[in-house]
Design a protein around this nucleic acid. Structure first.
Lengths: 193, 193
DNA sequence: GATATATTAGAATATATATTCTAATATATC
DNA sequence: GATATATTAGAATATATATTCTAATATATC
């Protein structure tokens, strides 16, 4: 019982997304989030325990969605497809991509996750580690730290590198990026560690 | 005439370097900089027009020194050597590397450079662009934007990607990084754009 | 040795922003 | 229709930190 809600949690998180996407981490204040949807700041704190909690939920939601797609492709075992995933995802989700891939996570949420989302953050890390580990086993016949270095480099670091400049400029990655990532991945994964 | 100075500008800049290197951008306050060398905050403002100016001078000094070495190797024309430069520089200058390569520049100095160092910032950008342009001409026979994309990717983005994880962890890049960068660079630069 | 002044010293102030708090409002439930 | 309460509404407060300001100090120059 009681008064009906005028806003939804999601609206505040989406407002934070828009604000970071346009103005960067420095632009997200509790007032700017509330103002973006004409809500009073009181309504922010009625829903979220702190400013950081909004950002944590935003970041985790994006990361989970990004990672779900990545792990699916990774499980299929195609290295090149997995290495191109980031690029395609950035093209489809340009704003989310900035939040997840352009800024360090610590710019949005302090190194220590706020209580209440630690489980989600830990699961994210665990799932990635597991997915990569079994990919490495399949790709190279057995697990080795050298194989993991190679997979991390080809499937994650290089695609990220190829995309970072565009994220900064706020433009979509060019066609040429596909080729650079594909070539690099094929070459790096061809050689056994 | 007048009282002799007890501190030097350099000490404040070095203090900022140490503080960022250890605690990240969030840890550099005017008070923490002054406190690090037991100076009063008044002495900070006696030397620097603002907190941002200290960070601008720190960042520009590191960037200039990094870039000078890079452009020298680039002028020699060896793509692989240039692609390994970042890695070697990170091993030699671990703290400076964090300031320059781990954090976005905008975390330290706002997008608009403070008046007084705009010339230095512009020169930095111009010199890199020129150095890369003439490298591309030599490497591929003629200048093309495709060639520039390839050079940027192989000589800058990939080396940065290979090194970022270590910068975050605060450890020196492993031997394996040399091989990944070298292999990628050779492969990417072999093909004409 | 007196004097001017560069610099130290650190307290006071300004400002931005997160958080708290009190009152008003709207509606579900009786 | 009365009542309890979830939620809105936004003013008040707390806090961190950059910047300013005033006084003290030490030394180069005369």
């Amino acid at each position: 019982m009681g008064r009906n809600a005028y806003f939804e949690n999601r609206q505040f998180i989406d407002a934070a997304l828009e604000i970071i996407g346009r103005g960067g981490p420095g632009a997200v204040t509790v007032a700017s989030i509330a103002g973006h949807i004409d809500a009073p700041v009181g309504s922010v704190y009625h829903r979220f325990s702190s400013r950081e909690m909004i950002l944590a939920e935003l970041w985790l939601g994006i990361a989970e969605s990004f990672q779900e797609g990545f792990l699916e492709i990774l499980a299929a075992g195609e290295a090149v497809q997995a290495s191109l995933y980031t690029l395609h995802w950035v093209r489809e989700h340009p704003i989310e991509a900035r939040v997840l891939l352009l800024y360090r996570r610590e710019e949005l949420v302090a190194r220590e996750w706020p209580a209440g989302v630690r489980g989600r953050a830990a699961a994210l890390e665990r799932n990635l580690a597991e997915g990569l580990k079994s990919f490495v086993r399949r790709a190279f016949g057995r697990y080795s730290s050298g194989g993991m270095d190679r997979a991390l480099f080809a499937l994650i670091q290089v695609p990220l590198a190829a995309v970072r400049g565009c994220l900064e400029k706020g433009v979509a990655p060019p066609e040429s990026a596909d080729r650079l990532i594909r070539e690099t991945c094929e070459h790096i994964m061809r050689r056994k560690p």
